[in-house]
């Protein structure tokens, strides 16, 4: 079980301060719903937690450590799907350094998100919603402790949203944690919430 601690975090974009003095703690099994108007810095907060953006001040620690002690995964606005590769190849080799998954695991994940039949279809022929489902499948395979989901509902149909809720509940039950930005309510038991 790990703990994410954020103390006095503030972020600056060019000259303007997006948010300041953000503090929260999140332990395994819990999730944080980040809310805020457009431009409030929700995505920047997630990118800061992912280690992409350096905070202007404040610290982010994972189980008391600063470094990448826990495996975290960021699902941003871009699907990170290579159009030249098939759905199955995208999961296996699309992002080098992802946890290696066997062919059976990949197929199982694809079936779970309803892309079982589209495994060998080049990703360029997948619809936007199907790409989001592919991202969900990747999320399952990455086996990360901390999920950082930026508007994960975008582009998903109602079944897809249900699926996302199911995966989130499983993830939390397994001791994982998640920070999610979303304007819509998610089909998960209400977690902590943070307004930016």
């Amino acid at each position: 079980m790990f703990q994410l601690n954020v103390r006095g975090l503030s972020c600056q974009r060019a000259e303007n301060i997006l948010f300041s003095g953000i503090s929260f703690a999140l332990e395994g099994g819990a999730w944080l719903h980040v809310k805020g108007r457009n431009g409030a810095g929700k995505s920047t907060l997630l990118r800061t937690l992912a280690g992409l953006v350096r905070p202007a001040s404040g610290v982010v620690t994972f189980s008391g450590r600063l470094g990448p002690a826990v495996r975290r995964v960021l699902c941003g606005h871009q699907a990170a799907v290579k159009r030249e590769l098939s759905a199955e190849e995208n999961l296996r080799v699309g992002i080098p350094g992802d946890s290696p998954a066997s062919a059976a695991q990949v197929q199982a994940a694809l079936t779970k998100v309803g892309l079982g039949k589209a495994a060998s279809v080049p990703a360029r022929y997948l619809s936007e919603g199907q790409k989001r489902r592919l991202v969900l499948a990747r999320l399952l395979l990455q086996c990360a402790d901390l999920w950082l989901l930026d508007e994960p509902v975008n582009g998903l149909d109602s079944d897809g949203v249900e699926l996302l809720g199911l995966f989130l509940r499983e993830h939390l039950a397994n001791g994982g944690a998640a920070v999610v930005t979303s304007h819509q309510p998610l089909p998960v038991a209400v977690g902590k919430s943070l307004a930016l």
Binding site: L52, G76, A80, I95, P96
Partner: peptide, 17 residues
């Protein structure tokens, strides 16, 4: 397409990648 972002976030040595 966002894959570079995933590579940087990932738990691997970016230099070797």
């Amino acid at each position: 397409d966002g894959t570079l972002e995933q590579m940087v976030v990932g738990p691997v040595s970016l230099g070797l990648l």
